[in-house]
């Protein structure tokens, strides 16, 4: 099979777009994981709630920008409330307790949005200034909105890089990720730091939910598929590492997209069509999990661990 280079470029952009989306999710999750040692399955719920807030606000105001300006703080407030009420009590518990309690949170939130917004999906529209397409070199025409997602994701990555490597808060976060006891020893209010980190993670999940709104349907349970992918990302990247989350997210985004679009074709070229048609899609959707199992089996600390190797 001949791979059309233009198509390859397209799919690479699609992979990049999925990747930055995953990064928005993974950055928060990996910080919470690395600093508070908390497995938060409900991170996907925050993403979902962010999308619901955005869709509702856009429905009322008709403005995407206004929706964005209000939905992200609203999500943040909700996240902080969840941290104060439930998650805070879980920091010292074992992983099993954390998994179960946050699983309970998922059930709660999925049902709560159904009660508040009804069972049918909500839909957001793309803002007018992003509803067109961008013409790139080599005849590639890419939807402006998806381009905006990539831009937002990269901007957030830059912001986090600056925050973490050049500010005092960042220093504390770095210290927390590699040595939790030390942060306390520095005389920092650890509780406050934890809440702040959680709030940051929630805001990022809220941004992801907001950006996903105009592409996907906003519905109960939308957080789980992306949550599972996000876990794959942070495990591959190395828990607690923003750099790992970024690289892992791009890797997963690109591998998943390219796998889905080219693997069946590649298999068709090598095996007989029947085998290829059966195995291709299966292998494509299993690809990232295989990747994760391989990484864990050979490099359990992830590709870019936070703690100095």
């Amino acid at each position: 099979m001949v791979i059309d280079p233009q198509l390859l470029a397209f799919q690479a952009l699609n992979g990049l777009q999925l990747g930055v989306m995953l990064f928005l999710m993974a950055a928060g999750l990996t910080l919470v994981f690395g600093i508070m040692n908390l497995i938060n399955l409900a991170h996907g719920s925050l993403y979902m709630v962010g999308a619901y807030f955005a869709a509702t606000l856009q429905g009322w105001s008709g403005s995407f920008v206004l929706a964005a300006l209000l939905a992200i703080p609203a999500t943040l407030v909700l996240g902080v409330a969840v941290e104060l009420v439930v998650l805070r009590t879980l920091y010292d518990r074992d992983h099993l307790d954390q998994v179960l309690a946050t699983f309970g949170l998922i059930l709660f939130f999925n049902e709560a949005v159904r009660i508040v917004w009804g069972p049918s999906a909500l839909f957001m529209t793309t803002p007018d200034f992003l509803s067109g397409q961008v013409a790139l070199p080599f005849g590639i025409i890419y939807p402006s909105y998806r381009f905006a997602i990539i831009a937002v994701g990269l901007a957030v990555a830059l912001f986090l890089y600056g925050l973490i490597s050049h500010t005092r808060v960042g220093m504390l976060i770095r210290a927390g990720a590699s040595n939790r006891a030390m942060v306390g020893a520095l005389g920092v209010d650890v509780k406050f730091l934890y809440t702040a980190v959680f709030a940051l993670g929630t805001a990022l999940a809220g941004i992801a939910g907001l950006m996903a709104g105009p592409i996907l349907s906003v519905e109960s349970g939308m957080g789980e598929p992306i949550l599972i992918l996000t876990f794959v990302v942070i495990v591959i990247g190395g828990i607690g590492s923003i750099r790992g989350a970024f690289m892992g997210a791009l890797l997963i985004g690109v591998v998943d997209t390219l796998g889905r679009s080219f693997l069946p074709g590649l298999l068709r070229a090598t095996f007989n069509p029947q085998v290829a048609n059966a195995a291709g899609p299966a292998l494509a959707s299993m690809l990232i999990y295989i990747l994760m199992a391989l990484v864990l089996a050979f490099r359990p600390q992830g590709l870019f661990p936070a703690r100095a190797a």
Binding site: A101, F103, L107, F109, E111, R114
Partner: peptide, 11 residues
Amino acid sequence: HWQFILGPVLI
């Protein structure tokens, strides 16, 4: 909406 009750019970 039984999951709305089950979730907190679980927690």
